[in-house]
Simulated scan of single mutants.
Amino acid sequence: MYDPTVARLTYRALLGRRRALILFVLPALLIVISVAIRLLTGADDSVAIEVLGGFALATMVPLIGVVAGTGAIGPEIDDGSIVYLLAKPLKRPTIILTKLTVAVAVTMVFSAVPMLIAGFVLNGNSGQIAVAYTVAAVAASIAYSAVFLLLGTVSRHAVVFGLVYALIWEALVGNLVPGARTLSVQQWALALAEKTAPSAEITSEVGLPAAVVLMAAVTAAGTWYAGRKLRTLTIAGEE
């Protein structure tokens, strides 16, 4: 269920000059902020949690997910070049799963890796905080990639909708409105972080079992519906 040619083309599209610049900016900013805070205030667990949770997990990870998830397939649908890919003797689930794998990999590299580095810079992984947020970023990368890949298949305005979701729902509503927190990928990921670093002051509004089930369900449903939408595009193209 993985095609190297599709993967290579998707990597090339995601890591082109413009998208690569966007992908590098936020991780670089996170590391710069972390270095500056460490130099100014020294190692502090509460500050590390605030930076890694309040900025990195709440804003950086979903934004990178938007770029990688929508960029894995959205531009091809918008410019019509997806027709050439669909004309190849490839199963549609293979195309979707390959693009999802690439989106997940790119999101993890540009979010989880900088998260780990920033965590060690901020407090040397005291209380397993750096590792905990890295685990959260890895899990969130999978769910975000599936959600935003789906958006890329169903809407020509996927980036706009993705940004609204990332900046308003995840970064604002998901943090402030109690009921909405249950439907927040960020809160699901925080449940994993809380379990990874039980001694740290990391809290989630969602229990771990529910978080795992919801994350798996969203990832599976998003991937399945994206594949279904792709089959619809094939029929339309053939007609």
Rank of each mutant, 00 (worst) to 15 (best):
R92V: 15
G124M: 07
A58I: 00
E76F: 07
A48K: 02
I129Y: 00
G74C: 08
F120R: 03
A105N: 15
I64V: 12
I64F: 00
V35D: 02
G54T: 02
I49D: 01
A112R: 07
I77H: 14
V121Y: 12
V104Q: 10
L63V: 10
A68D: 03
F110T: 13
I64R: 03
L90K: 15
L30K: 01
T107V: 11
A36S: 09
I73C: 04
S81C: 07
L63S: 05
V109A: 08
S81I: 06
T107H: 14
V109E: 00
M108H: 11
A72R: 04
V121T: 10
F120C: 09
F110D: 05
P75H: 04
I73Q: 01
L100F: 09
K99R: 12
A130S: 03
P93I: 08
M60I: 15
G71Q: 04
G65S: 02
D44S: 05
L100M: 09
D78G: 08
P93T: 09
G53M: 05
D78E: 10
A72V: 03
I49E: 00
A72Q: 05
A28K: 06
T98W: 03
I95Q: 11
A58W: 09
A87L: 13
A103G: 10
N123I: 09
T59L: 15
T41P: 02
A112L: 10
S46F: 04
K99N: 11
A105C: 15
T70S: 06
A118C: 10
K99V: 07
P62E: 00
A36L: 06
I33S: 03
L52W: 06
P114D: 08
K91R: 14
V67L: 11
S111K: 14
A28E: 05
L40S: 13
T107A: 13
G42E: 12
T59H: 12
L52D: 02
T59V: 10
G69H: 10
I64D: 02
S111C: 09
F110E: 05
L122Y: 03
T41A: 07
A43Y: 02
I33P: 05
V83A: 15
G42H: 12
P93C: 06
P114F: 05
S111I: 11
E76Y: 13
I95W: 06
T94E: 15
A118W: 07
L29C: 06
T107E: 13
F110W: 09
V104R: 11
L90P: 14
Q128A: 08
L85I: 11
A36V: 07
E50S: 08
L97G: 06
V106W: 13
P27N: 08
L122M: 04
T70A: 01
V51K: 00
